[in-house]
Structure formats: structure tokens, C-alpha cells
Simulated assay, not measured.
Amino acid sequence: MPNELLEFFLLCLTSLFTMINPLSVTPIFTSMTSQLDRATARRVAGKATLTAAIILILFAVTGQFIFKIFSITVDSLRIVGGVIFFIMGYEMIQARLSKIRFDKDNLHEMESYTQDIAITPIAIPLIAGPGAIASVIILMSSNTGLVYHLMLFSSIALVALVTYVFLLFSTPIMDRLGESGNKVLLRIMGLIVMVIGVEFFVGGLTPIVRNMLMIQA
């Protein structure tokens, strides 16, 4: 039992960390807050990571209700999540930080814009993106025990805390890693994301194929 809990906890951490990928959020956060003072940028980082963590927990808790309302199965979501993981992992292997582009001139609209960017786009979709949301729903559905759920929530909180630390020290991190170093790390994490994606895809497709074969038989 302890080994199973540890394996599940590590799976949660690996899945969430690679899908959220604080390194890919860091350069975007840096560019969007480059004209803000340190205290304001710190507040934006805290609000964004807290909002993203709450959103992920809400999706994890309400995932089963969403399944019932829209007649979605866990296996189908595993397949879709696997495809999303694989595509995002491929983008990371190509060392593309993000397809999203932002207009830096909007930062001159200081007060209202500063409040908005913490929610969108930093919290959603940069931190709590579709891959991370699919991941928490799948992980929540795969184990029904309260201890497993607490492990998932702890993983969300821990990854959110790590992301917050990355955002706080975004400028020195990017300066130290440099463009080449960041691209290398992105490719490594992209490979991990693709492997997780394949595992989710196969895990969701296998019971569907077995069920189809039983019906045909």
C-alpha cells in the first residue's frame, strides 16, 4: 500500500509538472511583467498560481459530474488527454515556448490590465491548461480512495508552489539558463510528456477495444 501511494504521488507530480511546465511559463511571465515593480509582479505571480491551483482542484472534484452531464467516459477522456499530452510534448520537443503571443504595449494600461493578466492568460491557459485539467480529472477518476485524492491535491499544491517560485525568480533563472539551456530542458520535458501521453492513450483505448471485441463475439 505505501508503495502504491508513492507511485501514485510520483505519477501526479510528474504529470502535473510536465504539463504545467513552469519553465515554459517563466519567459512569458517575465515579458508580461517586465515593466512592473517587483512587489506588483510578485502579487501577479501569487494570484495566478493560486487561481490555477483552485481551478485544477475544482475540475478534479467535479470531473465525475461533468462525465454524467455530457455522457463522457473516463476511457474516452484518457484517449483525448493522451492526444493532448502527445501534441504538447511534441511542441515542447520543438522548443516552442508557446504559440500564444501577447501585446506588451497593453502593460501601459497598468491597474486594470495587471489584475486581468493574473487570471488570463497566466492562470488560464498557461498554468491550468487543457492538458493539466485533463490530467487531474483522469488521476482523480483512476483512484477512489480519500488518501489518493489527498495525494493529488497535495501534488497540485506542490506544483503550484514550485511554479510560484519559478515566477518569482523568473528573470535570474532565464538569465542563468539562457536560450539554449531553456530549449534543452523543454525538449527533455517534452519527451516525458509524450511518453505519458502514450500511456494514457493506450490505457484508455485498451478497455474500449476489449469491450468492442466482446460485443462482436
Score class of each variant (00 low, 15 high):
I54G: 02
G89F: 09
Q64P: 09
Y148S: 08
L146I: 15
P130M: 09
Q35M: 02
L191N: 07
A60H: 03
I87S: 06
G181F: 07
V136Y: 07
M32L: 10
L152F: 13
P121D: 07
N21E: 15
M1Q: 12
I119M: 06
A45D: 01
L16P: 02
V209W: 10
I156R: 00
R38Q: 14
D116G: 08
S112Q: 11
G82A: 03
G190S: 03
T49I: 07
I87N: 06
L5E: 09
E109P: 00
T144V: 14
I28Q: 03
L191Y: 14
D75W: 10
E91V: 06
K47V: 08
L23P: 00
L186A: 03
L11R: 12
K183P: 08
S180Q: 13
V159M: 04
L56N: 03
I20H: 01
N143Q: 14
L107C: 08
D175P: 09
S112T: 13
M140K: 09
A41Y: 02
L161I: 12
V83Y: 04
Q216P: 02
P130S: 07
M110C: 03
N182A: 15
V74G: 00
G203D: 11
S76C: 08
M151S: 15
A132F: 03
M32P: 00
A132D: 05
A60F: 10
V195P: 00
P125T: 04
R176N: 13
N106L: 13
D175N: 15
R78D: 01
I156E: 02
F67P: 02
T30A: 15
T18R: 01
